[in-house]
Amino acid sequence: MIKNRFTEMLGIEHPIVQGGMQWVGRAPLAAAVSNAGGLGILTALTQPTPEDLRNEIRKTRELTDKPFGVNLTILPTINPVPYDEYVKVAVDEGINVIETAGANPEPYMPLFKEHGVKVIHKCTAVRHALKAEKLGVDAVSIDGFECAGHPGEDDIPGLVLIPAAADKLSIPFIASGGFADGRGLAAALALGADGINMGTRFMATAESPIHEDVKQAIVEGTELDTILNFRPLRNTVRVRKNQVSTEAVEILNNGGKFEDVQHLVAGARGRKVFEDGDIEAGQWTVGMVQGIINDIPTNEELINRIISDATEIIQNRLANMLTATSPVS
Rank of each mutant, 00 (worst) to 15 (best):
M1D: 04
M1Y: 09
R5C: 05
F6C: 04
T7M: 08
M9H: 08
M9I: 02
L10N: 04
Q18Y: 00
G19R: 01
G20S: 04
M21S: 00
Q22I: 05
W23Y: 14
W23C: 08
V24E: 00
A27P: 15
P28Y: 08
L29R: 09
S34T: 07
N35K: 03
N35C: 10
I41F: 09
L42H: 05
T43K: 11
T43G: 11
T49H: 03
P50L: 04
I57K: 01
I57S: 04
K59H: 15
K59M: 15
K59L: 15
T60A: 15
L63G: 14
D65E: 06
P67L: 10
P67Y: 12
P67H: 11
V70P: 12
V70H: 13
N71Q: 05
L75G: 07
P76Q: 10
T77I: 02
T77E: 11
I78K: 14
N79T: 15
P82G: 07
E85L: 10
Y86M: 00
V89N: 03
V89Q: 05
T100H: 12
T100I: 14
T100M: 13
G102D: 09
G102C: 08
N104F: 05
P107L: 03
M109K: 01
F112G: 11
V126T: 14
A129T: 01
L135E: 10
V137Y: 10
V137N: 03
V137H: 08
V140R: 01
S141K: 03
F145T: 10
A148P: 13
H150F: 09
H150Y: 07
P151I: 04
D154M: 09
D155C: 02
I156D: 04
L159F: 11
V160I: 15
V160R: 09
I162P: 11
P163Y: 08
P163T: 00
A164D: 08
D167F: 03
D167G: 01
L169G: 06
L169N: 06
L169H: 07
L169W: 03
A175S: 13
A175I: 10
G178A: 06
A180H: 13
G182M: 07
G182D: 07
A190D: 00
L191S: 08
L191W: 11
G192T: 01
F202N: 06
S208P: 06
I210C: 00
H211A: 04
E212L: 07
Q216T: 13
I218K: 01
T222F: 01
T222W: 05
D225V: 13
D225G: 08
T226L: 10
T226A: 09
L228P: 01
L228W: 00
R231E: 14
R234S: 12
R234E: 14
K241S: 04
T246R: 07
V249T: 07
L252P: 10
L252A: 06
G255T: 02
K257I: 10
F258G: 12
D260Q: 02
A266M: 04
G267A: 13
R269S: 06
R271M: 12
F274R: 10
D278Q: 03
Q283C: 11
T285C: 09
V289E: 09
Q290P: 05
I293S: 06
I293P: 07
I293Q: 11
P297R: 12
N299C: 15
L302H: 05
I303F: 08
N304K: 07
R305K: 15
A310Y: 01
E312I: 10
E312T: 14
E312Y: 13
E312P: 00
A319K: 03
P327H: 02
